[in-house]
Design a protein around this nucleic acid. Structure first.
Length: 329
DNA sequence: AAATCGGGGTG
DNA sequence: CACCCAGATTT
């Protein structure tokens, strides 16, 4: 029988991407991949996924992970509370679930970092529980399938879509849930959907799919100006650890003031870093200090052990050039 | 319900 | 430039 689900499953079997975290059905790997994929393009998280599994191959290793090593493994991926929640979750699983991930969506949802979507994804993909896993792709696909001309971020519309998805669920549930997401990622994409290549176009009610889903306007970002001072003494660089809450919590940063004693200052140029809700307009200066204090690190330490956010990367690269030039002379 | 939390790819 | 991405959590 020709149903939306059958067409979708058939398309998925032939056309899905060959992704590393689909190689086996290990719940641990699926969990890690789902957390990494939150608000992150699959291609962007793949290299992190491979490296992370070598460093932290199982729940026990993750529960015992060194916090700095964990942040270093996540460096550049963003939303760093995700990796802290991974460790918290691993510890809770040791205590509450005999050292394993629980197997139901309801139990998974009680763990740190695992919300409605991720719980459904793990339960359905790893354990074949017949539950939904509604991410941005699924919202887009269903808003178009049913021509939903409402703000999809409202609770009411969200419930409506959930209901539609729930009624559509079929076995094999792991394949079906991933098929909807894959369609959203490859065919039913934002702005310019590839409807002519869509396996379920005959089931789609959207008259203007490019205009869906409807979302509220985004607020403008605030701008903040920062002047950074990169203290250098004897080829070593001073870094501060940021506070444990808020933006880039627990990550390292350059100073925002001059040291008590210094010899000279050299500009490292300007760079504007854009976050979701704020924009940092930065200018940085290299400052040669004549006193060694605590908190100075060698370049290879920074390279291998220190979690420096991408916001500071351009200045770090310029710093490397300067220090390398000095060593040559 | 709205704000917060990263970073990068894309039109 | 704006938008969005296999969202969760806090306010």
């Amino acid at each position: 029988m020709k149903t939306m689900q059958n067409e979708l499953l058939e398309w998925y079997a032939k056309n899905h991407r060959d992704l590393a975290f689909r190689k086996d059905q290990d719940a641990y790997k699926i969990w890690i991949s789902e957390i990494m994929a939150q608000q992150t393009r699959i291609e962007a998280m793949l290299p992190y996924f491979e490296r992370f599994l070598i460093l932290f191959p199982n729940l026990t290793a993750l529960a015992n992970a060194d916090d700095e090593a964990l942040h270093k493994a996540w460096q550049g991926l963003g939303y760093y509370s995700r990796c802290r929640n991974l460790k918290k979750c691993a510890i809770e699983c040791m205590k509450r679930f005999h050292g394993e991930l629980p197997k139901t969506k309801a139990e998974l949802k009680t763990l740190p970092g695992i919300g409605e979507y991720t719980a459904g994804a793990i339960a359905s993909i790893a354990y074949k529980e017949k539950v939904s896993a509604i991410d941005g792709n699924v919202i887009r696909v269903f808003s178009r399938l049913y021509d939903i001309q409402e703000d999809v971020t409202s609770i009411k519309t969200r419930r409506k879509i959930e209901s539609l998805v729930d009624r559509s669920l079929v076995q094999p549930i792991d394949q079906y849930n991933q098929a909807i997401m894959e369609l959203g990622a490859l065919i039913c994409i934002p702005k310019v959907p590839k409807c002519s290549a869509c396996p379920i176009r005959e089931f789609c009610q959207a008259s203007d799919p490019a205009s869906l889903p409807i979302k509220p306007e985004k607020k403008k970002r605030k701008k903040e100006k920062k002047v950074l001072y990169v203290w250098v003494h004897d080829g070593r660089v001073h870094l501060n650890k940021r506070k444990a809450t808020g933006l880039l919590a627990n990550m390292y940063e350059f100073d925002e003031k001059l040291p008590a004693h210094y010899e000279s200052v050299v500009s490292l140029g300007e760079y504007t870093h854009i976050f979701s809700h704020v924009e940092w307009e930065m200018q940085a200066n290299l400052v040669y200090t004549n006193k060694e204090d605590s908190g100075f690190y060698a370049m290879d330490e920074i390279e291998n052990e220190i979690a420096l956010p991408s916001a500071f990367k351009p200045f770090y690269e310029r710093l490397k050039e300067v220090i390398f030039d000095e060593e040559k002379n």
